[in-house]
Nucleic acid binder design. Structure first.
Lengths: 225, 225
DNA sequence: CAAGCCAGTAACTAATCGGTTACTTTGTGA
DNA sequence: TCACAAAGTAACCGATTAGTTACTGGCTTG
């Protein structure tokens, strides 16, 4: 099948810049590889992911994948970094400093739950990364700088709560965050074995809502005086 | 390298039965394949596990692996079944019905935590199985029969607590168990990314102990009236 | 003790997979 | 406008990997 020469020439000669109708578009190509790779790695883990499958899903030639990302492992790292940037960016919309202590904890818990629920691929990538003992996370300078911003804000919030006599004085910010994350992560990432064994559909709308309220309740109950 | 004929004949002719010095020992071979496969699947996931690596680790010829287990997937299923049998067997040592309600919850939480801590391979296999949406667990008739025995016992325990006015009347047994499991599972299975990002060694003896007490505290705080 | 089955080995194979080579096409700036 | 770099393609390659073949050695039973 031949390309129509005249058409391409006519377009480029018109002087319009980056019309998004270009036959060649590095940014879009890169983005579609990243999206396809995120799906493939989340779905199959790093050992099960197939480079050819990523190329096909992205609608590009496999050569391009190596052109933009080097090799399979570097592509995986780019996917992981992108996923972390995603949650850290979303976190910024949370303004814990403006809220009453109990309200703040509740918002943090619901935000975390909501993010996990909407981003199953993030949970899956975390699972893969931990299977490999954070091998790629540890070698990523970019991710080591990108530490969670809200542990500090959470510490302030808890401090205010303690000063008001609402929270126990020995409450630790990281442990509070781990509690919230644990309850959300486990419920969602292990839903398949749990639903099978206990015969309850954990993704049922009603059950999801019960669990969301449960996380808030548990977290608050554990830190109150 | 030649086998020494006389030695082997002499041994078998002596009339002693199953001296455990047999050159051929089906049970031991099977067991060593299973142990090696458990390690390999837990370490690399199903996609990353290598049949040759399992054979080498088990000290057997690869042919034997197919002889005893059929193929890689059936071997994985055998590993998964074995792991579940392990925890269900251990659960039986718990006698919740003999304990006071609060004491019972505390024992259950500490037992679960202890088991997870001593069996990282079980957590890893759960992660792999969930990545694949419980594909093998669902097709295993053996595992579907092997449901967790202590949800019923836990229900009784909670019922007693409710009757004594200790626990809230709306407390759900499965949610209590999920809470306990979630707090243990997430802390341990995600320790690598968490330690890297938050700069705290979660496997430090002191931190492990704090978390154990934390699980008990959180669980009790969430169900008390 | 003969016969047959089961345990075990070494070497092989077909297919898969990550990565590359050799090449063409397209955009752009001197 | 043309030279050059970047974007893109198709076909290929060597290594790995799950699974097999063809065979030997050893245990049990009638």
């Amino acid at each position: 099948m031949e390309k129509i020469r005249g058409e391409a020439k006519g377009r480029s000669a018109s002087g319009r810049r980056a019309e998004r109708t270009l036959q060649r578009d590095p940014e879009r190509t890169r983005a579609s590889i990243l999206a396809a790779a995120t799906w493939e790695f989340a779905e199959n883990g790093i050992g099960g992911a197939r480079v050819d499958a990523i190329a096909e899903r992205a609608g590009i030639n496999k050569r391009m994948l190596y052109h933009y990302f080097g090799d399979k492992e570097q592509l995986y790292l780019a996917v992981l970094e992108d996923a972390y940037v995603g949650i850290r960016t979303a976190e910024k919309s949370l303004n814990l400093s403006d809220l009453e202590p109990e309200q703040g904890i509740s918002e943090l818990a619901m935000f975390t739950w909501g993010y996990f629920l909407e981003h199953p691929e993030f949970l899956s990538l975390l699972g893969t990364e931990n299977l490999h003992r954070a091998r790629w996370l540890r070698q990523s300078t970019r991710l080591k700088e990108l530490h969670s911003s809200f542990i500090d804000k959470l510490a302030d919030l808890l401090q205010r709560g303690k000063a008001e006599g609402l929270f126990r004085p020995d409450v630790d910010p990281l442990n509070v965050y781990l509690t919230i994350a644990a309850l959300g992560y486990f419920y969602l990432s292990n839903q398949y074995t749990l639903s099978t064994i206990f015969g309850r559909d954990l993704m049922d709308k009603g059950n999801l809502d019960v669990w969301k309220r449960h996380i808030v309740h548990v977290t608050l109950a554990s830190i109150r005086r």
